[in-house]
Nucleic acid binder design. Structure first.
Length: 269
DNA sequence: ACGCAGACCTGTACGC
DNA sequence: TGCGTACAGGTCTGCG
């Protein structure tokens, strides 16, 4: 569910509201996360420092005073959310992990239980393998090289986190539409000009989505439980049967690489 | 190396 | 109302 803009939104909000708070206890309520209770003594008493996004994950910096910092790395996957409550909230059966703070708590809530929470001891382990879009490495030249042996659809290529980190189904649909590129095109068939357009449109769309605090569909809410504003900007995603805002053709939905894909055959060639 | 199918989970929407 | 089916924004594993 959450893609780069949604994770960035949550990380920025938590950075403001959590920085400086001391963790007083760790409560783990999901057997899939039973590696965490063993980290309880490490977490308790530590002070939350910077919260930031790395790839699609939220990293919470834990300051231990004299010792080196560690990080709590949270991947929200499809339905994960992080909520910072000023006081203890009403029961929610989908709370998986709760960090008790000096004031209130931080809840990791995840209905489908796909999300992950791990403790990271080395800064190097935080860095995802794919190219970060907001980095100097995200260039048309680099992407052309990366895709040189990829014969599968560009739609699937852009979703690969070991190539580019942060894009998910919604933004890939929107980027390909903005570029006028069919999601069926083989990744290695894109020209240097196509890749330049992918770079430009990816940065434009992600920047706008971050400004609007992401896209809310079913499950995404930010750390305050409010919804993102990018849904109103979507040109094709979840708009099957509706007119394409660029050419007036009809947007279609079809499965590509087993993922629901929305695009306009009229202007994406 | 690649692409593809299936798995992981739960909830919601919809048709009968 | 209840049941069955399809679908959901992510990523890993195993197979060919």
């Amino acid at each position: 569910m959450p893609e780069l803009p949604e994770v960035e939104t949550v990380a920025r909000q938590l950075d403001k509201s959590l920085s400086g708070q001391r963790i007083s206890d760790l409560i783990v309520l999901d057997s899939k996360l039973d590696h965490l209770p063993g980290q309880r003594s490490l977490l308790c008493g530590s002070r939350l420092d910077t919260v930031f996004r790395t790839g699609k994950q939220v990293a919470l910096t834990l300051n231990h005073g004299t010792r080196d910092p560690t990080w709590l790395l949270v991947h929200l996957r499809m339905t994960g959310r992080l909520f910072h409550h000023q006081s203890l909230p009403e029961d929610n059966k989908h709370v998986r992990v709760r960090l008790l703070l000096e004031k209130g708590c931080l809840d990791f809530v995840d209905t489908r239980r796909f999300g992950t929470v791990v403790v990271c001891r080395s800064r190097g382990d935080l860095i995802p393998p794919g190219i970060e879009p907001f980095s100097g490495a995200f260039t048309a030249k680099r992407l052309l090289e990366l895709a040189a042996r990829s014969t599968g659809p560009i739609k699937a290529f852009l979703l690969r986190q070991d190539r580019i980190t942060g894009l998910g189904n919604i933004y890939v649909c929107e980027i390909l539409h903005a570029c006028g590129v069919s999601p069926h095109r083989a990744a290695n068939s894109l020209s240097p000009a196509d890749w330049s357009c992918v770079v430009t449109q990816t940065l434009r769309i992600l920047t706008l989505a971050i400004e609007l605090c992401g896209t809310t569909f079913r499950d995404f809410q930010d750390s305050r439980g409010t919804e993102g504003g990018f849904a109103a900007m979507l040109a094709v995603y979840a708009r099957a049967g509706q007119p394409c805002p660029r050419c007036g053709g009809s947007v279609i939905r079809e499965a590509i690489s087993q993922r629901g894909s929305f695009w306009c055959p009229g202007c994406q060639g």
